[in-house]
């Protein structure tokens, strides 16, 4: 079908998001680790399906907006495709937080900080970094298992084992140039964190929970 989950995520993120090719200062771009085994490829194939089966997630994200670091805190309902996030410049002096909602087809942006009014926006994943983040989040779940042949073709590697906030994770890297890194909760087939250098300044999304989430859109904004 028209979506191949992670393989799409890895192969397409350059097309979805602006600024391909930049490097995260903490990561090496050259391949490290060991080639993923068939069992590990199968784990990778199941990750997005597992995310979907759990319903949704609370998340944080680190991104760049207008060349400045920003953070997002939000929730996403993978089943409905709806989500919401509060996006804040890391430097509070650069401006107040702004809230966004989204559906599969529309982004609703707070008209002004603190406002109860929302402006409907056509998704522009290449031109708008917040929309790019939303597009990326929408690729983090899938209703069916991913294509192991596509994943294997992207040369996945197990980088190692570590922890995120005390939770043990397995770190994988793949993509045609190894520039997307995934941290999968050990033994659970659930995505904990994903990082890509294909977005200007890098984009990190950390799924803090995996749980049913219900998103109520702002009044008069149902799409």
């Amino acid at each position: 079908m028209s979506r191949r989950a992670f393989s799409a995520l890895v192969l397409l993120v350059c097309g979805l998001l602006a600024g391909c090719g930049s490097q995260h200062p903490k990561l090496k771009s050259n391949a490290t680790g060991t080639p993923a085994t068939d069992a590990q490829v199968l784990t990778l194939a199941r990750v997005l399906e597992s995310d979907f089966e759990h319903g949704g997630a609370r998340f944080t994200a680190n991104l760049q907006v207008n060349g400045q670091p920003a953070q997002a805190t939000g929730r996403v309902d993978f089943r409905s495709g709806r989500g919401t996030a509060l996006v804040s410049p890391t430097d509070p002096g650069l401006g107040p937080p702004r809230r966004f909602y989204w559906t599969r087809s529309t982004v609703l942006a707070q008209a002004a900080p603190g406002s109860r009014q929302y402006q409907r926006q056509v998704p522009d994943e290449q031109g708008n970094p917040v929309h790019g983040m939303i597009g990326f989040i929408n690729l983090l779940s899938a209703e069916t298992i991913d294509n192991t042949a596509n994943i294997a073709a992207a040369a996945p590697r197990l980088i190692g084992h570590t922890t995120i906030s005390g939770a043990p994770v397995d770190e994988f890297r793949y993509g045609l140039s190894g520039d997307t890194t995934l941290w999968i909760l050990t033994g659970s087939e659930l995505l904990r964190q994903v990082y890509t250098t294909r977005v200007t300044g890098g984009l990190t999304i950390d799924l803090l929970t995996h749980e049913p989430v219900k998103i109520d859109l702002p009044p008069a904004a149902h799409a």
Binding site: P35, L42, A45, R46, I145, N147, T148, A149, A152, A153, A155
Partner: peptide, 15 residues
Amino acid sequence: YLVNGVVWSPSSEYR
């Protein structure tokens, strides 16, 4: 099977 019944594809070394 969780993925495919029967799949023919090049090994990753051939990509």
